[in-house]
Simulated assay, not measured.
Amino acid sequence: MRKSRFTEAQIIGMLKEQEAGMATAELCRRHGLSPATFYKLKARYGGMELSDAKRLKQLEDENAKLKRLLADAMLDNVVLKDLLGKP
Results as ranks from 00 to 15, higher is better:
Lys16Cys: 03
Leu66Ile: 12
Leu80Pro: 00
Leu50Ser: 00
Ala23Gln: 14
Ala73Tyr: 12
Lys42Gly: 02
Ala36Pro: 00
Ala71Leu: 12
His31Asp: 01
Ala71Gly: 05
Ser4Val: 10
Lys81His: 07
Ala73Phe: 13
Glu19Ser: 12
Gly47Val: 02
Pro87Met: 10
Leu27Val: 10
Met14Ala: 03
Met48Ser: 01
Glu17Leu: 11
Arg2Pro: 13
Asp72Cys: 07
Lys54Phe: 06
Arg5Trp: 10
Leu84Val: 12
Asp76Lys: 11
Lys40His: 08
Gln10Asp: 09
Glu8Thr: 06
Glu19Arg: 13
Asp72Lys: 09
Glu26Ile: 12
Ala71Phe: 12
Met1Cys: 11
His31Val: 08
Ala23Glu: 13
Leu27Trp: 06
Lys81Asp: 07
Gln10Arg: 14
Asp76Phe: 04
Pro35Gly: 00
Thr24Phe: 05
Lys86Glu: 13
Met74Asn: 15
Ala64Glu: 13
Leu15Phe: 02
Arg30Trp: 04
Phe6Tyr: 15
Gly32Asn: 04
Met14Leu: 12
Tyr39Met: 03
Leu56Gly: 02
Thr7Glu: 04
Glu19Ile: 08
Leu75Lys: 14
Gln10Tyr: 09
Ala23Lys: 15
Gly21Ala: 09
Leu15Arg: 04
Leu75Cys: 09
Lys67Leu: 11
Ala9Arg: 10
Thr37Val: 06
Ala20Leu: 14
Ser51Tyr: 06
Lys16Asp: 05
Ser51Met: 08
Gly47Ile: 02
Leu56Ile: 07
Asp61Val: 03
Thr7His: 04
Pro87Gly: 13
Phe6Ala: 02
Lys65Gln: 11
Glu49Ala: 05
Gly47Cys: 01
Pro87Lys: 09
Glu60Asp: 07
Lys65His: 10
Arg5Ser: 10
Glu17His: 08
Lys57Ile: 05
Pro35His: 04
Arg68Gly: 05
Gln10Ile: 09
Gln10Val: 06
Leu15Ile: 11
Met74Pro: 01
Gly47Lys: 00
Arg68Thr: 13
Gly13Ile: 02
Gly46Ser: 02
Tyr39Trp: 07
Thr24Trp: 11
Tyr39Thr: 05
Gln10Ser: 12
Asp76Gln: 11
Ala36Asp: 00
Ser4Gln: 10
Glu60His: 05
Gly13Lys: 00
Met22Pro: 02
Lys57Ser: 09
Phe6Thr: 03
Ala64Cys: 10
Ala43Gly: 05
Gly85Leu: 06
Lys42Trp: 00
Thr7Pro: 02
Leu59Arg: 14
Val78Ile: 15
Glu26Arg: 14
Lys86Gln: 15
Leu83Glu: 12
Leu33Phe: 13
Glu8Phe: 05
Leu69Ser: 06
Ala71Asn: 13
Gly21Lys: 07
Ala20Ser: 14
His31Ile: 03
Arg29Glu: 15
Val78Asp: 11
Arg68Glu: 13
Ala23Trp: 08
Gly13Phe: 02
Phe6Leu: 14
Arg55Ser: 05
Gly47Ser: 03
Asp61Cys: 05
Pro87Cys: 06
Leu41Ser: 00
Gly46Val: 03
Gln10Asn: 10
Thr24Ile: 15
Pro87Arg: 08
Leu83Lys: 14
Lys65Val: 10
Arg2Leu: 11
Ala71His: 11
Phe6Cys: 04
Leu27Tyr: 07
Ala20Gly: 12
Lys16Arg: 14
Lys67Ile: 08
Leu84Ile: 14
Asp52Asn: 06
